[in-house]
Every structure is written in C-alpha cells, then in structure tokens.
Simulated assay, not measured.
Amino acid sequence: MKITKQVLAEAWQRTAARHDLLTDVELPPVTNSEDELEEWAEHAEESQDGGLCLLIDEDGTVHGRHGPYREVFVTHDLEQVLYLIAEAAIRGRGGSLEETAGALDRIDPAWGRRFRTGGLDDAGTVEACGRDPLEGLAWIAGTWREQAPYTTLAFFRAEPGQTVDAERLALLYGADPAQVEAGTRLRDLRAVDEGRAHWDRHWKSCCYGQAGGWTYLLHHETPPGAFADKEAYAALGIKDNVWLSATSAKAIYTFDYMRDGHRVDDDWDVLELIRYERGRAPYLRGGELEFLNRAVRRAELDHPELTNTFELYFHALEESLGLCLPRQDFAEGEVRAAYWAGT
C-alpha cells in the first residue's frame, strides 16, 4: 500500500487506540515537500516526540527527520514508520534504555526486541558482551578526545586470509626507513628525545602494527608520503579502511569507513562522532551503517556503567568491525614507532 498522509494518519490512529502507552501520542508533523517542512520547522517548538517530523514523497517513501535537514530514516514500510514514531515517543519520555525497551514490549514484543537489537527489524539476538569494554578499543577513547596518543587512528584490512604489511605501510606513508628496519619502539623514541624535545617531535611521529586482523597506523600531522605512490598503495591489497580523527580545539571527531573503494556513509559526507546521542541511533536507520547502529545499542544495553558516549562508540566499533589497539604495548612503549623521514 502506498503511504499517503491519510493512510499514515489512519494507521497511527488505529495503533495508538490499541495501546494505552500511545493514546496521548499525536502523529508527528507530516509534510509533502521540503518547502513545507522548512516552513513547519521555522514555527515549531520542541515537542514530546523529540522533534521527529515526516516527509512523504509522491511515491510513498517516508523520510524521518529530526529538524528539517537531519534525515534519520527512509522507508516504504508502513509498519516501520509506526514503530519509529512509537520509539521516538517512548524514548522521549526519559528513563533508562531498559525501561524504554520494556514499554515497547508492552505495546508489541516484536517492537521491544527490535529496540534491543538496534535495527529496523527484530531478527536474531545478540549475546551480551560479558567483559570489560575498556580492555578493548574503548580504552583509548578518553585520551583520544584530547588528541593523545595520536590525532588520527587509521586502520587497514585486506581480504580474508591476508594481511596488510605494517612495515610497508609505514614506509609508504613516510616513516624513517632506518627506524623501521631497526624495529624502533615508542619507548626508544622517548628515550632518545627525553622531555620537551620528544613531545615536540612527537607530532612528526607514527606508531604502527597489527591487531585484531587490522593493520593500524597512528599519527598526528598528515604523513609526508600519504598516497604519493598510488601503485605501491594498491599493491598492499587493502580492502577496508577506517579513519578516526580528532580535532580537540574545534571539538570535531570524525569517522570514515571505506570498503572496496566505496565510502560507507549513506551520502552523509563527514560523520561526526560527537553527534551521537545515547539511546538514538547515530546513523541512518536501515542504511549502510545499520550494523554500527546495532552495535552501539548493544554497547549501551550491555554497559550501563559507561556514561562516556565515546567509550560506548569505540566499544561498538570493536564489536562490529573488530578494531582494536594493544593497550599494554602502548602503556609500556612496546608498540612499533618511527619519526617521519627527514625530521
């Protein structure tokens, strides 16, 4: 059935009438054009549904927006629209995520399961984590927000069964060949340039290695050899890339994911980590990054003790993509390191 304003209004009226938790929930504003949506936004005030509004295209596609520009879902499925309206309304009342899930259970057990999985369907279940998330990638989240140990955390992965050579990668990006050949460690750099001299030169250094099936290269300034030799870079056999970048002076923290040469971002362009709000999926529902929406929700439910959303986010990246960094090696200075050649 093609979704129209009338179809949606009647469907929501029937849904709300059947459940006492929804009887006072009004249908969010529904528009049929961008101009109409912007006009509504100019006069709208914060509402109980968290600012959700809907734009229906001529073909019946429904776009869910928070405000006139931030798109949070796109679907042709009427049942999904009804669920998302209910989810926004229940979550907007406050309370813990378990309380939100419980309320959705009362409306429809399938909706409760769907909320817990973090996706647009309730297919499958996810086992509880059962371990300390700060022993994984999330350990770095706190200091990374202040650009320590490095501004950019870059990860590279090849086809299954293959690895991206960490030394070749570091050399290609501009690491000092002598230090790479010598197997220089982070503690060696610190020992050579003690005190302020090291920290000044630290901005021209990198750390590299392998963990969790990924090769990582951490650095501050743009590497002098970045992508200079495209053929050599292609020969590394890289299939997936993840870049996490921190600009603390501007409070900008970004996430970029490339898979098979395609940027995975649902055409959102720059993805800022700081926009993530606990209890709300950070990426387009049902989009290319739905796997990360699911992982974030599981991190929230598994670890209510974590109040830092960056720690939750990093834990979700570890669970969904396998990203990790060797905490002990960094703490003891055992991670491989080098300055950029000529510095």
Rank of each mutant, 00 (worst) to 15 (best):
residue 136 G to Q: 09
residue 138 A to W: 04
residue 139 W to R: 03
residue 139 W to L: 05
residue 139 W to N: 01
residue 141 A to C: 05
residue 141 A to T: 02
residue 141 A to D: 03
residue 142 G to P: 08
residue 144 W to N: 05
residue 144 W to Q: 08
residue 145 R to I: 09
residue 146 E to Y: 12
residue 146 E to V: 12
residue 149 P to M: 02
residue 149 P to A: 03
residue 150 Y to I: 02
residue 151 T to I: 09
residue 151 T to Y: 08
residue 153 L to T: 04
residue 154 A to I: 01
residue 154 A to T: 02
residue 155 F to K: 01
residue 158 A to I: 05
residue 159 E to K: 13
residue 160 P to C: 08
residue 162 Q to H: 13
residue 165 D to N: 11
residue 167 E to Q: 11
residue 168 R to A: 13
residue 168 R to P: 00
residue 168 R to F: 03
residue 173 Y to C: 12
residue 174 G to N: 09
residue 176 D to F: 06
residue 176 D to G: 07
residue 177 P to K: 05
residue 177 P to L: 03
residue 178 A to Y: 07
residue 181 E to D: 10
residue 182 A to R: 07
residue 183 G to K: 04
residue 183 G to I: 06
residue 184 T to I: 06
residue 184 T to S: 11
residue 185 R to W: 05
residue 185 R to F: 03
residue 185 R to N: 05
residue 186 L to P: 00
residue 188 D to Y: 07
residue 190 R to Q: 14
residue 190 R to L: 10
residue 191 A to T: 06
residue 192 V to K: 15
residue 193 D to F: 13
residue 194 E to L: 11
residue 195 G to R: 08
residue 195 G to E: 09
residue 199 W to T: 11
residue 201 R to G: 06
residue 203 W to S: 11
residue 204 K to C: 10
residue 205 S to W: 02
residue 207 C to I: 04
residue 207 C to P: 01
residue 207 C to T: 11
residue 208 Y to A: 04
residue 208 Y to L: 07
residue 208 Y to Q: 05
residue 208 Y to G: 06
residue 208 Y to T: 05
residue 209 G to A: 08
residue 209 G to Y: 05
residue 211 A to W: 02
residue 211 A to P: 00
residue 213 G to I: 05
residue 213 G to T: 04
residue 214 W to C: 00
residue 214 W to H: 02
residue 215 T to Y: 03
residue 216 Y to R: 06
residue 216 Y to H: 10
residue 218 L to M: 15
residue 220 H to K: 10
residue 221 E to C: 11
residue 222 T to C: 11
residue 222 T to P: 07
residue 223 P to A: 10
residue 225 G to P: 04
residue 227 F to R: 15
residue 227 F to N: 14
residue 227 F to K: 14
residue 230 K to G: 13
residue 230 K to T: 13
residue 230 K to W: 09
residue 231 E to C: 01
residue 232 A to T: 07
residue 233 Y to M: 14
residue 233 Y to G: 02
residue 236 L to Q: 06
residue 239 K to I: 11
residue 242 V to W: 01
residue 244 L to R: 00
residue 244 L to F: 03
residue 247 T to E: 12
residue 247 T to A: 11
residue 249 A to H: 11
residue 255 F to G: 00
residue 256 D to N: 14
residue 256 D to P: 03
residue 259 R to G: 06
residue 259 R to A: 12
residue 260 D to V: 07
residue 260 D to T: 08
residue 262 H to A: 15
residue 262 H to C: 13
residue 263 R to F: 14
residue 263 R to W: 14
residue 264 V to Q: 12
residue 264 V to E: 09
residue 264 V to T: 10
residue 266 D to R: 10
residue 268 W to V: 10
residue 268 W to Q: 14
residue 268 W to A: 15
residue 270 V to T: 15
residue 270 V to S: 12
residue 272 E to L: 14
